[in-house]
Simulated assay, not measured.
Amino acid sequence: MFGSLMNRLLRPSLINICKESARLQTRQMTTVFDDPPVETQSVERLEKTVNQVVLLGRTGAAAEKRGTETHPVVTFSLATHTNFRKGDDLIQQTEWHRIAVFKPYLRETIYRYLKKGQRVMVQGRIGYLEKRDPENNSLVMKSATIIADDVIFFSQ
Rank of each mutant, 00 (worst) to 15 (best):
M1F: 04
M1G: 11
F2E: 15
G3Q: 13
M6T: 10
L10I: 02
L10G: 00
R11V: 08
I15R: 07
N16P: 02
K19Y: 09
L24C: 04
L24Q: 07
L24A: 05
T31W: 02
T31Y: 08
T31V: 14
V32E: 11
P36Y: 09
R45V: 14
L46Q: 14
E47P: 01
E47L: 01
E47A: 10
T49N: 03
N51Q: 02
L55T: 15
L55Q: 07
L56Q: 13
L56N: 14
A62M: 06
A62G: 13
A63H: 08
E64G: 06
K65F: 01
K65H: 04
K65T: 11
P72S: 13
V73T: 08
V74C: 01
T75V: 12
L78V: 07
T80S: 03
H81T: 03
H81R: 11
T82Q: 15
R85N: 08
K86S: 10
K86L: 14
G87C: 07
I91G: 03
E95P: 00
A100M: 07
V101H: 00
K103A: 14
K103D: 08
K103Q: 13
K103E: 10
Y105P: 06
Y105V: 11
T109E: 15
T109C: 11
I110H: 00
R112C: 09
Y113H: 15
K115E: 13
R119W: 12
M121N: 07
Q123E: 12
G124K: 04
Y128G: 03
E130A: 15
K131V: 12
D133Y: 00
P134V: 04
E135L: 08
N137T: 10
M141L: 10
K142S: 03
K142T: 08
T145C: 01
I147L: 06
A148E: 02
D149S: 15
D150L: 05
I152L: 09
I152Y: 04
F153E: 02
F154P: 01
F154Y: 15
S155Y: 05
Q156D: 11
